[in-house]
C-alpha cells in the first residue's frame, strides 16, 4: 500500500535515534535550566536576546517557509505584544506571565480582522499588505497620546518592585520556556496532518485545495498562531528592554532580522533558523558597532544566498551529509520492510 509516512527523511538519510535525540534535548534543556547557577547575569542576558531572536525566526519560518505566507509586517505583533504587556502589567496590575499570554491573545485578536483583508491579496501584494497593517497599528499607537503616550512611548514599571536579580531570572526563565516551546510547537505541528497540509499549500495552493485541504482555514490558523507567538515574544522583548516607543516596536527591522536569520540559516527547516540565529548573534557580538554596515552585510549575504543557495546553510549541510535532526519531511513508500522501519520516527 502506498502512503505518506509521517516525518521521514529521504531514503538513506541519517537521523538521530530516539535515545540520541532525547539525550541531545536533555543536554540543551539541562544546560539552559542550570545556567542561572553557573553563568553570570551577562550570559543570561545574552541568552534572552538569542532565544527571542530564535523564537521570532522560527515563527517567521513557519509562516513563510512552511506555509508560503511571506509577511514583512510581523513587527505589528511585536509592537502590540510589547504594549499589551505594559497595559496588562501596569494599567491592570496583572502578573507578568499572564501579561505575556494576554499579549499573544491581543496580537491574535487584531490579526483576525487583518487576515480577513490580507487574504484577499496574493503573493507580493499580500506582503506589502502586512506592512500596511503594521503601519496602521503604529500610527494608531502614535495617535494615542494620553493612554499610550504617543511617540514618547511608555516604560514598564510593574517590575520595578522586584529586585534586579528576580527580574532577570524571571525574564530568563520565560525566554527559555518560549524559545524551546516555539521549537517544540513548530516540530509537532509540522509532523501533524496540519503540517502536511501546510507544505502542500506552499507548494501549490490550487492542488492542495483540489485534494480537499481547507486552504483558507489552515492559512488563517497559521497566521493567527504566528501572530500569537510573535505577540508573546514581543512582550518578552519589552519585559527585557522595559522602555517601548512606537517607532522602535513597530520597526520593520524586526522582520528584517527574522528574514535574514531564516534565509541564511535555511528556510523551510527547523535547524535552519537555529543556525541562522547563532550566526546572526555571533556577528552581532563581534561587530561592536552593530549598525548600518551590519545590516548591509546581512542583506547582501541574504540576497546572494537567495540566488545561489536558496536552501541556506542548513540546506547545504543537509544535502552534503544527508542528515537531519528534526525530520518533518514525508516520503511516499511501501508500508513495510525497508530500512526505515528501524529509525526513530515510525
Amino acid at each position: 500500500m502506498i502512503k505518506a509516512r509521517v516525518a521521514e527523511s529521504p531514503a538513506g538519510w541519517k537521523q538521530l535515534s530516539v535515545i540520541q535525540f532525547t539525550a541531545l534535548g536533555a543536554l540543551v534543556i539541562g544546560a539552559l535550566v542550570s545556567l542561572p547557577f553557573w553563568g553570570g547575569p551577562g550570559v543570561m542576558r545574552m541568552l534572552v536576546e538569542f532565544l527571542t531572536l530564535l523564537a521570532l525566526a522560527q515563527l517567521w519560518n513557519l509562516l513563510a517557509g512552511y506555509t508560503g505566507l511571506v509577511s514583512i509586517g510581523q513587527q505589528a505583533w511585536i509592537g502590540i505584544g510589547g504594549y499589551a504587556l505594559i497595559v496588562a502589567a501596569d494599567d491592570l496590575g496583572l502578573p507578568i506571565p499572564l501579561g505575556l499570554v494576554l499579549a499573544g491573545v491581543a496580537a491574535a485578536l487584531l490579526a483576525l480582522p487583518a487576515a480577513g483583508l490580507l487574504f484577499r491579496l496574493r503573493g507580493g501584494y499580500f506582503s506589502v499588505g502586512t506592512w500596511v497593517v503594521a503601519e496602521i497599528l503604529r500610527l494608531l499607537v502614535m495617535n494615542s497620546t494620553d493612554w499610550l503616550r504617543g511617540g514618547l512611548g511608555r516604560t514598564l514599571t510593574a517590575t520595578s518592585a522586584m529586585t534586579r536579580e528576580t527580574r532577570e531570572l524571571l525574564t530568563y526563565a520565560l525566554a527559555v520556556v518560549i524559545g524551546l516551546g516555539v521549537i517544540a510547537l513548530v516540530h509537532l505541528l509540522m509532523r501533524s496532518r496540519t503540517g502536511l497540509a501546510l507544505t502542500a499549500i506552499r507548494d501549490s495552493e490550487t492542488a492542495a485545495a483540489n485534494l480537499g485541504i481547507e486552504t483558507q482555514r489552515i492559512k488563517l490558523f497559521v497566521y493567527l498562531l504566528c501572530a500569537f507567538g510573535t505577540g508573546v515574544v514581543g512582550a518578552l522583548i519589552y519585559l527585557n528592554l522595559l522602555r517601548i516607543t512606537p517607532d522602535a516596536a513597530f520597526s520593520v527591522q524586526w522582520t528584517a532580522f527574522m528574514i535574514f536569520i531564516v534565509i541564511i540559516g535555511g528556510i523551510g527547516s527547523i535547524e535552519g533558523p537555529i543556525i541562522g540565529a547563532i550566526l546572526f548573534f555571533v556577528l552581532r557580538q563581534f561587530l561592536s558597532d552593530f549598525g548600518e554596515w551590519s545590516l548591509i552585510l546581512l542583506g547582501a549575504i541574504a540576497v546572494v544566498m537567495m540566488i545561489f543557495a536558496p536552501e541556506g546553510i542548513w540546506g547545504i549541510i543537509r544535502r552534503r551529509w544527508q542528515f537531519e535532526i528534526f525530520p518533518v519531511h514525508r516520503r511516499v513508500g511501501a508500508s513495510s520492510g525497508d530500512a526505515h522501519e528501524r529509525n526513530a520516527w515510525q
Partner: peptide
C-alpha cells in the same frame, strides 16, 4: 539578479528585493 530566480515561485524575488530595500536604506543612512 532577479532573472536568476525566475520560475522558483513568488518568494525568492520578494525576499531579494526586501534585502535590497534594507541595503539601500542603510547605505543611504551611512
Amino acid at each position: 539578479v532577479l532573472n536568476r530566480v525566475l520560475g522558483s515561485g513568488p518568494m525568492p524575488p520578494l525576499l531579494i528585493t526586501f534585502g535590497i530595500s534594507i541595503m539601500i536604506q542603510n547605505g543611504l543612512l551611512l
